[in-house]
Design a protein around this nucleic acid. Structure first.
Lengths: 221, 221
DNA sequence: AAGAAAAAGTTGTAAAAACAACAAGAGTGA
DNA sequence: TCACTCTTGTTGTTTTTACAACTTTTTCTT
C-alpha cells in the first residue's frame, strides 16, 4: 500500500493532494489496487465494469479485434490516465473493448459515482479530486478527437503526416520520439504495417521526414 | 430566458433538477445563451475557449478541413451534448477544430471550472449537475471510441458495416434511420461519397443490407 | 558471443479507394 | 408546372492500399 501512495500522489488524478490526505480519501472511497503482467487482459469485451480504472504504472491498450482478426488499438493509456470510466457510467455497464497490459501494470480501481457524490465535506480535497478527474477525462476526449483527425485522413502518408505533425507540435521540436513500435503505430493509424513501412521510406526519400527507430524529424519543405 | 428554462430542464445536463432550481443555479454560475443560424460558425480553430458549450436546440458538427480542402466531421453534437469543454480545460485553451451549426441552434455556455468548484453547499443540486456532466462527457468518450472503431476498419464496406451494425444494435431493430445524408455519412466515415454510394449499392446487391434514403435494414446472412 | 527471436524494411501483385465526370431523382420555389 | 438546386447513384480511370512472401536489422537469451 505504502509503495503506491507515492505513485498516487504523482498521478494526475491526485495532483495537488498530499500523501496523508490521499490515504484519508481512499478510506472514504471504495478502492482496489491490482497489478498485471505484460500481455495480461485487464478486462474483456462484455465484462461488467463497475468502477473506473486508473493507470498508476505501465501502459494499457484499449483494443478490439474484428471477425477476421485485424487488431485495432483504439487508445493507449499511460500513467495517470483513466479508462473504463465510460462503461461504468453507461446503461449496459459492459466493456465494448478489450483492455490489455502492454507492460507490467499497476491499476487503481475507484468507484467514480461515489467520488462524484460529495460526502458532506468529509474530505477537503474531494473538490480537487473532482476537478482532476474532469480534466483527465477532458484530455482523453481531446486525444480521441485528435486520433479521429488522423484516421480521417485518406492516405497512409496523410495519416502519418498528421500524426507526426501533432507529435512535433506537442514536443515543441522538429525531432521527437513516439511511444509506438512500427506494428503499434500501424495498428494505431489503422493501416497495414508493411505498407506503412514502405510509405515511411518514401517520405524519407522525398525529404519530408527522416527517422531512425522511434525518433522522427520533420523536414522543412 | 423563460423559453429556455424548459429546454434546460429537459437537457441531460439538468436532468433531475426542477425549473425553479435551475434558475437559482444559473444565478450562482456564469452562463450565457446564444442562438446561431444554420451554417454559422460557433467557434473556429484557434479561438480562445473559456467555457463549455451545451446544445439546447439543434445540431452542431465538430469538423476540420485539411490543407487540400477535405472536410472531416469529427463529431456530431445534438441536444444535451457538451462540446468545447476539453479546450477550456486544456493548457492552450484554444479550439483545435471548427464548430458549425448544421441547423438553427441554441447554445448554453457555462463556466465548468466554476461548476466543479462546489460552492459551500449553496445549491443542493450542484452534485446532480456534476454527476450529469460526468455522465455526458463519459458518453461522449464512448461515442468517440466507437467512431474510432469504425474508422479503424480497412475497407469502406467494413466501415459501413460496423457503423450500421452499431446503429442497428442501438435501435434494437434490424431497421433504423441514421441522422446523416450520404455526404455527411461519407465525411463521418472519412471515405469518398461516390465510392461509398457504389459500395452501398454492392452491399444491397449482395443481400447484406437494403435501404431507401436514410432508412437501412440489415439482412440475415 | 552465437544463435534465436522479434522487429523493421522491401518488393510485386491483386484488390480497393479516390477521383472525376456525369446521369437520374427528389425537393423547392416562382 | 417548370426550372433550378440539391442529393444520390453510376461508371471508368488512376492512385493507393492490403496482402503475402521475403530479406535485413535489431534485440534478447543463454
Amino acid at each position: 500500500m505504502e509503495k503506491y501512495l507515492k505513485l498516487l500522489s504523482e498521478s494526475k488524478i491526485f495532483e495537488g493532494v498530499k500523501e496523508e490526505e490521499i490515504l484519508k480519501m481512499l478510506n472514504c472511497l471504495s478502492f482496489k489496487i491490482r497489478s498485471y503482467k505484460k500481455g495480461e487482459y485487464i478486462f474483456l469485451i462484455g465484462d461488467k465494469i463497475s468502477s473506473a480504472a486508473i493507470v498508476l504504472e505501465g501502459t494499457v491498450h484499449i483494443q478490439k479485434e474484428d471477425y477476421w482478426g485485424n487488431l485495432s488499438i483504439l487508445n493507449e493509456m499511460s500513467e495517470g490516465d483513466i479508462f473504463g470510466e465510460a462503461y461504468s457510467a453507461s446503461l449496459s455497464g459492459m466493456a465494448e473493448n478489450n483492455a490489455v497490459a502492454v507492460k507490467e501494470c499497476v491499476i487503481l480501481y475507484l468507484n467514480l459515482e461515489k467520488i462524484l457524490t460529495v460526502c458532506s465535506s468529509l474530505c477537503d480535497h474531494h473538490n480537487t479530486l473532482i476537478k482532476n478527474i474532469y480534466r483527465t477525462i477532458s484530455a482523453k476526449n481531446l486525444f480521441l478527437t485528435q486520433k479521429i483527425g488522423y484516421l480521417s485522413q485518406r492516405t497512409t502518408r496523410e495519416k502519418l503526416f498528421s500524426y507526426l505533425s501533432d507529435q512535433s507540435v506537442k514536443a515543441k521540436s522538429a525531432t521527437f520520439t513516439i511511444p509506438f513500435n512500427r506494428q503499434q503505430l500501424a495498428d494505431f493509424l489503422a493501416v497495414d504495417r508493411s505498407a506503412m513501412c514502405s510509405e515511411l521510406s518514401k517520405m524519407q526519400k522525398d525529404g519530408i521526414i527522416s527517422y531512425s527507430k522511434n525518433t522522427f524529424t520533420l523536414k522543412e519543405i
